[in-house]
Amino acid sequence: MKKLFLYLIFLLTAISFSKLQAQQHIQTIGWNVVAKIPPAPMQSQSIGLAGAITGIHQHLLFIAGGTNFPDKMPWEGGKKKYYNDIFIYRKMARGLALRPYQAKLPFNLAYAAVCSIPAGIVIAGGENETGLSPKAFIMQWENGKITFNSLPDLPEGLTNAALTLVGDILYLAGGETTGGATDQFLTLDLKNTAAGWKRLINLPQPVSHTVLLTAGTKIFVIGGRKGNSGDTSTIYKNVWMFDVKDPVWKAKTSLPVPLSAACGVGAQQELLVFSGDEGKTFHQVERLIGEINREKDEERKAKLNQSKAVIQAAHPGFSRKVLKYDIARNVWTVIPGTMPYGTVTTKAVWFENEIIIAGGEIKAGVRTPKILSGKIKTTK
């Protein structure tokens, strides 16, 4: 009797699993370039932006701020330039159309933590030529014009952090202060902003350049990196989950490979992560920088600098993979096909039924002006 009972349980489990498999869809994404970011003032052609603010409000796409190297690459002595331009796009039957509207951010800004919410686009921290910013504000489109509403300052200047929303609460994870990557996890209640940012339980590890995604009340911190003084940076493959109903960090299945500066979106009960830096070239350059800093002989130092420039100029580009995380099964898979190009230090957003990834860095120091659209395709 016991054997029969166990057999029936096994049979029912097998049938249920078969049904689950039959119901599952293999997702692919069809990619197209749907627009380009215009040239900056005084530039004849666009060379793109990295670290730009990307968000959605009132059925419009906003791209603002960002950086590039307009004259020379950084290893040739080029200086990073920061911007405050705002570009607004509306969706067309095919592609995106740039609205003829000129506006500026209150100041030059890049690498801010950004989150689109019903009230507008929240922008927190970031950096510019004067240093790290503690400022936070909401950019809104109201009555045909852009307005800015201040939020409480962050506890200190912070760049390369990540931001998301659950209910009426903003959650900000990690980032870099003047002391390096931080493990802070902050909240701001949008119904009581006067209370300011509050610190929750620390992240399991200091991290910047992470992907922060939500599914219901669950918040996921995916990959990222931490600079290490005198050594190469740690690039994480760890994935951590925080449920606002059960406020502790729980380790989930790690990424297939370490990734930093990727971007992603939530898609029902799945999370999608696009591109990212696996760190091979990044670590090579860091090792050479360490050797250069320790070298006393000027001739040897010049040769090391030349080697570093060769490696940076020959950068192979970033990962073109799309990774999918099944929340219920706690499993990562690689979606068939690849992106047209890998791009980092940018943000992915849902624009109605399309995934939009605007600009970003495609090789060391090199930006792209292209705006990618991804449409999810499903097959049984």
Rank of each mutant, 00 (worst) to 15 (best):
G175L: 02
L172H: 09
D168F: 10
L213T: 08
G174Q: 12
T217R: 07
S208R: 14
V207P: 00
K191L: 08
N192C: 03
T217P: 02
T182A: 09
G175S: 01
T164D: 09
V239S: 01
T177N: 05
G224L: 04
V221E: 08
V221Y: 02
W197P: 12
A194Q: 15
G223L: 01
G227E: 07
A194H: 13
F220L: 05
D189N: 14
L203C: 02
T193M: 14
P204H: 03
S233C: 05
G175M: 11
L186W: 07
V211M: 01
F185G: 00
N202L: 10
S233V: 09
G216H: 13
L188K: 06
V239C: 00
Q184L: 10
S233T: 11
T178P: 06
N238A: 11
T164H: 11
L213P: 11
L190P: 14
P206Y: 05
T164W: 12
K191M: 07
S233G: 05
F220I: 04
N202W: 12
D183E: 15
L213A: 11
G167I: 08
K218G: 05
A173S: 13
L190S: 12
D189A: 09
G167W: 08
I219M: 09
I222S: 02
V221I: 11
G167F: 10
A215V: 10
K226D: 11
I219P: 05
I235A: 00
I219D: 04
S233M: 05
I222M: 00
Q184W: 14
N238S: 13
